[in-house]
């Protein structure tokens, strides 16, 4: 049932150099509405080395990485939607961004909570560093701290460069 786990997905990805933009499409390709079994057994489990290293790779797969419920196109949770909207408003470069759908992968869903020591989804990472969940993104967006961070990390689409359009290759 969960043939496309993050572990196998990332192994495949590791074979490809410069896979940052591809990473975004990896969870987005499958349907976000597949019914999920109840996962309490997974949630109680300790983070295995294999899952940890898979998440390591996911976190490093792009400068800006969001773990969310659903996909950027069809978020499955209001808090994940808010996070995506904020990244859009901030003008984060799609090429510098990867999203991982935790609903697609029970191991990721349970593992990321322990990995980040953060019990809720969404979770944002910038340059492999945990930034926060939805509330923190909203308050950083309002205070201007998020814009500052993204600017420093050079992950926003520059003005005048294909603004509002698909950026050229």
């Amino acid at each position: 049932m969960f043939a496309r786990t993050i572990v196998s997905g990332l192994r495949r990805q590791a074979l490809r150099p410069a896979a940052t933009s591809k990473a975004a499409s990896f969870p987005a390709t499958a349907s976000p509405f597949r019914p999920q079994p109840f996962l309490s057994a997974f949630q109680a489990r300790l983070l295995s080395d294999e899952t940890r290293s898979a998440i390591d790779k996911a976190v490093a797969s792009a400068p800006v990485v969001l773990f969310m419920k659903g996909t950027p196109e069809t978020p499955a949770c209001g808090f994940s939607r808010a996070a995506i909207q904020i990244l859009g408003l901030q003008g984060v470069d799609p090429n510098a961004f990867a999203a991982f759908n935790v609903l697609e992968d029970p191991e990721l869903r349970a593992g990321i909570k322990e990995y980040s020591d953060w019990p809720t989804i969404p979770q944002l990472y910038v340059d492999k560093e945990f930034v926060g969940g939805c509330d923190i993104l909203v308050s950083m967006h309002q205070s201007g701290d998020l814009a500052k961070l993204f600017e420093e990390k050079k992950v926003v689409v520059l003005e005048g460069e294909g603004e509002g359009e698909k950026p050229s290759q």
């Binding site: 953060w118 019990p119 923190i136 308050s139």
Partner: peptide, 20 residues
């Protein structure tokens, strides 16, 4: 920092959040 503050609250309410 904010993440540390949120973690303090999450840790405090860990049981209530883990509860089915």
């Amino acid at each position: 920092m904010q993440p540390a503050r949120h973690r303090m609250v999450y840790a405090l309410l860990r049981d209530e959040m883990a509860l089915e």
